[in-house]
Design a protein around this nucleic acid. Structure first.
Lengths: 217, 217
DNA sequence: CGCGTAAAAAGGATTTTACCTAATTTTTAA
DNA sequence: TTAAAAATTAGGTAAAATCCTTTTTACGCG
């Protein structure tokens, strides 16, 4: 029997049933094994320190309590750039994917992937240094060629603050007070955003913000 | 070797990696086996018809395309009341849980359950006819003793329609036109809801609707 | 300094929301 | 059939939101 060192993988996901099943699946592969599991970024950090060896690959869920995938990916990129990170998520929201990619993850996998493809994904990630499922590839292409509606989707700090506050029950006057600006300035932000985002009223802005993860409920 | 007929289980979940892992886990149990899997309610209906035998238990995801868990549970309760349905979901939102329970499911399991508990859950479901994870039990207790804020959380058909339309860019006048009611009636709905839900403006209503899954983005 | 540019602010008008109370119609139940 | 309850509609008013245009301010730069 040929004995080859298996590549070690870490699974970070707060859904223990899923994480466990995933770990079992990976351990059934001849070329990969699970080093450990963690429920969130903090637990992962602790376990990474406690272990002598580092994993080659980290499978990282996005929606987690305590320290979510975005923060964890950022920390990994800064502290362990050699570890390949594969983001694992239910969501195929364009903004979410792009946000993770900007954090420096090496791949993005939707959780509805076929089990057979997981091995392929891990191998490709190891060999090529990246792997993206098809939907993600589409999203990337799409983001390179944004439609008219989706241009001007970058916001200045103040705009972003305004948008987030507009997603609350505050009146514009109250928002102006909090941001220490004139109500007329706030009205300027509002008007400009309505035009750029092609929306008709504040509800439209709230919907836009939620769809694009600019704020959360 | 003692040969006992295994109880058959069907897994309905659009996340194939999760569904597959779940199926593997169940097949590893000595007392349960997976009859088939389906990606949504429609596919489940088709496969149920195609099979001679019916499963004892159906594990049902809530968030699915085409035909979601709510619709599927409703259909199962009407057409196959003898099959025990175990709702399986990431969410522990009180409203979601209650909605599923009202559809007649026999149990509600959060996806972050420990693998060891799944077997226990299936056995209990089979023997007692129901199983609920701890968090759900808490939710049930909580719902029996609602706080002041959470009373009056049931909506009439018209109110629900209004709420959903209010979560769009339509003005109240436009909503009145669509619903074929006087703007004054719409204003009545609005006012009543603001008071009952203790919210200040339309954004508050949108947030409430989204938090309680009355509408979706 | 003066110029250009972008952010901030203002003026002023209209529409939409929001709030309160009361009247009318429809539905329900006795 | 009739009284009570629920749903719908009205009237009026104040506050907030929306829209358009113009002016002021802040700041870097040749």
């Amino acid at each position: 029997m040929k004995v080859t060192k298996k590549n070690s993988v870490v699974v970070v996901d707060d859904h223990s049933l899923f994480a466990r099943s995933l770990a079992n699946l990976i351990n059934s592969f001849s070329n990969f094994e699970v080093l450990f599991q963690a429920k969130n970024g903090v637990e992962m950090q602790e376990k990474l320190q406690a272990h002598d060896v580092l994993p080659e690959i980290i499978l990282l869920d996005i929606n987690m309590p305590v320290m979510d995938g975005f923060e964890t990916a950022e920390w990994l990129a800064q502290n362990h750039p050699e570890i390949k990170v594969l983001a694992l998520s239910m969501e195929d929201e364009e903004q979410t994917i792009l946000k993770m990619l900007r954090k420096g993850v090496n791949g993005y996998l939707l959780k509805d992937i076929h089990p057979e493809l997981l091995n392929k994904a891990l191998v490709e990630l190891q060999e090529k240094g990246y792997y993206h499922s098809e939907k993600v590839a589409e999203t990337l292409l799409h983001s390179l060629n944004p439609t008219e509606d989706e241009k001007n989707l970058e916001f200045k700090e103040n705009e972003l603050t305004f948008i987030k506050l507009a997603c609350s029950e505050m009146t514009y006057k109250e928002i102006a007070d909090v941001m220490d600006l004139s109500p007329k300035t706030i009205d300027g932000y509002r008007q400009d955003l309505f035009r750029r985002l092609n929306i008709k009223n504040r509800v439209g802005l709230v919907i836009f913000a939620l769809k694009n993860n600019l704020t959360q409920l």
